[in-house]
Lab assay of single mutants.
Amino acid sequence: VPQRAWTVEQLRSEQLPKKDIIKFLQEHGSDSFLAEHKLLGNIKNVAKTANKDHLVTAYNHLFETKRFK
């Protein structure tokens, strides 16, 4: 089981690129989880459509539901 890579403050910070969060989610989330949160596909394309709040919610949801690969 992966550990949380970032704190809530870090997740919301401008310093953390959306692409980093997407990469983490794609590496650790199950396909059904990723599909549900519309996070499947090319990281660049996902970054265009997903806002930061959406990614933070998905990140927290992944750990709450433990839907890891």
Rank of each mutant, 00 (worst) to 15 (best):
E9H: 02
V46M: 07
K19Q: 15
E27N: 09
K69I: 07
H28W: 15
Q10H: 04
T57C: 14
D20P: 05
H37F: 14
F63R: 02
K66P: 05
H28I: 08
T49E: 11
V1Q: 10
L62A: 01
N60P: 00
K48Y: 11
E64G: 05
L39Y: 01
F33K: 00
S13C: 04
N45T: 14
L11N: 01
P17I: 06
L39M: 06
K69D: 05
A5K: 15
K48D: 14
N42D: 15
V8L: 09
A58P: 01
A47W: 06
S13D: 10
I22S: 00
K19M: 12
R4I: 06
Q15D: 10
T7R: 02
K69L: 05
E36R: 07
N51P: 07
W6F: 05
K66V: 05
T49D: 13
D20W: 04
H28A: 11
K19W: 10
K48M: 14
L11H: 01
Q26M: 07
L16I: 15
I43Y: 10
E36C: 12
Q15W: 09
A47I: 12
A47P: 02
A35L: 12
F68Y: 06
K66L: 10
I22K: 01
L25K: 00
L55S: 01
A58G: 02
Q15A: 13
F33A: 00
P2K: 04
L34G: 02
Q3V: 10
K66S: 11
F63D: 01
S13E: 06
P2T: 05
A58Y: 04
R12L: 15
K69W: 06
K23T: 09
Y59E: 01
Q3K: 14
F24E: 04
K23H: 08
G29Q: 01
E36D: 10
H54E: 13
N45H: 13
F33Y: 07
H37K: 07
K38D: 14
A58W: 03
K44S: 14
E36T: 07
R67D: 12
H54Y: 06
H28L: 06
L11S: 01
L16W: 03
T7K: 02
E64Q: 08
K48N: 12
T57Q: 10
H54I: 10
V1S: 08
A35Q: 10
F33E: 00
T65L: 09
N42I: 10
S32P: 11
Y59A: 03
E27I: 07
T7F: 05
E64I: 07
K44Q: 14
V1D: 09
Q10W: 04
A35P: 01
K44L: 15
T7A: 03
A35D: 08
I43F: 09
E36G: 08
L62M: 07
H37C: 11
H28D: 01
F68R: 03
L11Q: 02
A50V: 14
E14A: 12
I43Q: 07
E9N: 02
K18L: 12
Q15R: 06
K23A: 11
T65M: 11
L55N: 00
P2R: 04
F33N: 00
P17S: 09
P2S: 04
Q10L: 05
K69H: 07
E64P: 02
E27G: 08
K23F: 07
I21P: 00
N51K: 07
D20I: 12
